[in-house]
């Protein structure tokens, strides 16, 4: 086989060491993953397995102790503060467990923020924000502040905001962890739709087994290492055998 695999994110031997007093914690211990363009990939693993650290390394939110993270051809570790800001602004959209909607701003203002940072003229940013908020089902709530929105609605604002600058990658850190099952399913569905519609690569860390159903591939992490990477189809078999065993 010699097809070319087109990747959007590639990590090479990424190590992150935290110092906690006298002990060293290897939050990431040589992680190699290659994430293909347009795929929906879930990162699973118990808390403390390094999911969030990997997420932060890919998102340029912290520098690894050693190793490289490539977004396309760009080595994230080589970027200065301004270039990192550009990368965060234009190439990556972030979705968080706790939504992180700016509290004093309306849904509309929250979604225009990344566009304003990216230099989009305010009028155009506003039009685009209305359009994308309508797309995520909040067309009638654009002037509401987070206080007036439910958790699911706030996460929808966060999704709209993450997609505002037409990024290449969406990084979602446990986006459904604070939501009830039904709302969580809606959010997962919405993220999958956006992934299909826009061809955006979605990287999602999660505990949520429902997330597996819509993922193209699943990465399991344990103790800062990639335990295994599996395709969606193979996982089905595994889950079935697990069920049979029980």
């Amino acid at each position: 086989m010699d097809d070319t695999v087109e990747y959007t994110v590639m990590t090479r031997d990424v190590v992150k060491v935290y110092r906690m007093g006298d002990t060293e914690v290897r939050a990431l211990d040589g992680v190699d993953v290659t994430i293909r363009t347009g795929e929906y990939i879930s990162i699973m693993g118990p808390s403390g397995s390094g999911k969030t650290t990997l997420f932060n390394a890919i998102g340029g939110l912290m520098k690894p102790t050693s190793g490289n993270v490539f977004i396309d051809e760009i080595d994230v570790a080589q970027l200065d503060a301004n270039e990192l800001a550009w990368l965060r602004c234009r190439k990556i959209g972030y979705i968080f467990q706790s939504y992180n909607i700016v509290k004093v701003m309306t849904a509309l203002e929250n979604v225009t923020l990344p566009m304003l940072f990216g230099g989009v003229p305010p009028d155009e940013a506003q039009d685009r924000a209305v359009e994308i908020l309508t797309r995520v089902g909040l067309g009638d709530r654009i002037l509401h502040t987070p206080k007036e929105l439910s958790g699911g609605q706030q996460q929808r604002v966060a999704i709209a905001r993450a997609f505002a600058n037409q990024p290449a990658i969406i990084l979602a850190d446990e986006p459904t962890a604070n939501l009830d099952i039904h709302t969580g399913e809606e959010i997962i569905e919405l993220m999958k739709e956006m992934n299909r519609e826009r061809g955006v690569t979605v990287i999602c860390s999660t505990h949520d087994h429902k997330m597996l159903d819509i993922s193209d591939r699943i990465v399991w992490m344990r103790d800062g290492k990639v335990q295994k990477i599996a395709n969606r189809a193979d996982v089905d078999i595994e889950i079935n055998t697990m069920k049979e065993k029980h």
């Binding site: 086989m1 695999v5 590639m10 550009w86 940072f117 230099g119």
Partner: peptide
């Protein structure tokens, strides 16, 4: 498997004003 791995898109890092 000897499939080549290559970046999907060619772009340059920009800067924000």
């Amino acid at each position: 498997m000897n499939s080549a791995i290559q970046p999907s898109a060619d772009w340059e890092i920009g800067s924000l004003k």
